[in-house]
């Protein structure tokens, strides 16, 4: 019982992180209809910024953990959104309006580029940082096993919920959100109505990148290790989450992330840790066989 509860807690934490990254995929897909393959690497870049930030703050003698976290979050979001902007400007904007596969290939190229850039400039070694938030609450003890809800897990889930609420508000209530949704539906018509489509798309990339940045900082704080390869795995999982939830749907991305996080946590504990990726992808394939547009996605209407 306690073991299952522990897996539930771990799965939800992991799922929240996947969900944050998945929102970036889903928003970009919604607005320009392409898989931003470099998104996982944007997340990795932000994790490295977080490592540098935390180390720098420690060197300056900052001991207050909430202050350090807040500063690093803001700095990481700022720098990472510049990365998001630059990726769109360099690799995707010149290819807008060409074949569907061209931006996919340049996205894969961008992903390889970012991975190797970080490997060159920051080193190929794993970067460890000391744990920042220790302690937690013992929730339940059965059969000599104690399920523990750590403070960092609480923080991750709280931040995710807050961000999700803020984002839902941003997309459904603000004028930027209206512009963004208008661009999703019909870019030409939106441009005719006097909305700067290029700006809206750039902002979408920056927002997606800043969510990935939050995920990157959270993961750095939670696991305490970062290397240049984490972006690929997390990116694929998050994209799977976005597709599972129905690509283009914000709550879908979060739901997909949670499902994938839970599957991974339970599968690796009860069945086999080696095959957890097989489980994730098998379930993805099964869901798509029976619901090709994902769990919360609108079925695509094909027009002749």
């Amino acid at each position: 019982m306690a073991l299952a509860l522990q897996q539930l807690i771990n799965g939800l934490t992991l799922g929240a992180v996947y969900g944050l990254i998945a929102i970036g995929y889903t928003m970009v897909y919604g607005i320009i209809g392409m898989i931003n393959f470099a998104h996982g690497d944007i997340y990795m870049v932000s994790a490295f910024i977080a490592v540098t930030g935390f180390t720098l703050l420690t060197a300056f003698g900052v001991t207050s953990v909430p202050f350090a976290l807040l500063v690093v979050l803001i700095v990481a979001v700022l720098f990472t959104s510049v990365y998001g902007w630059a990726v769109e400007r360099l690799a995707y904007r010149p290819l807008r309006g060409s074949t569907r596969l061209a931006p996919l290939i340049s996205a894969i190229g961008m992903s390889i580029f970012l991975q190797n850039m970080v490997q060159l400039t920051q080193g190929a070694r794993v970067k460890p940082i000391p744990p920042m938030i220790t302690g937690g609450i013992d929730v339940l003890t059965t059969d000599g096993f104690t399920a523990r809800l750590s403070y960092s897990q609480i923080l991750i889930v709280l931040v995710t919920v807050a961000l999700l609420a803020a984002f839902t508000w941003l997309i459904t209530r603000t004028s930027f959100g209206r512009q963004q949704r208008a661009c999703e539906q019909d870019r030409t018509m939106t441009a005719l109505l006097g909305i700067d489509v290029d700006r809206t798309i750039s902002l979408t990339f920056m927002l997606g990148a800043s969510l990935a940045a939050v995920a990157g900082v959270m993961v750095t704080m939670y696991y305490g290790v970062v290397d240049f390869y984490i972006g690929f795995v997390a990116g694929i999982k998050a994209f799977t989450a976005a597709v599972l939830g129905g690509i283009g749907s914000l709550p879908g991305a979060m739901l997909g992330g949670l499902i994938i996080g839970l599957i991974e946590a339970f599968w690796s504990n009860y069945l086999s840790a080696e095959y957890k990726d097989v489980a994730t992808f098998s379930i993805l394939i099964l869901v798509l066989m029976f619901r090709p547009s994902g769990l919360l996605g609108r079925p695509e209407v094909e027009k002749v």
Binding site: T240, V243, E274, Y275, D277, F281, L288, E300
Partner: peptide, 28 residues
């Protein structure tokens, strides 16, 4: 066979997943 109903990017992610499944199975 399972990807008959899928189009475009959904197909892409299923094929990607299939590739990963094969690799993970071969590794383990």
């Amino acid at each position: 066979w399972p990807s008959l109903r899928l189009r475009g990017d959904y197909l892409a992610i299923v094929t990607l997943g299939f590739g990963e499944i094969i690799r993970v199975v071969l590794t383990n």
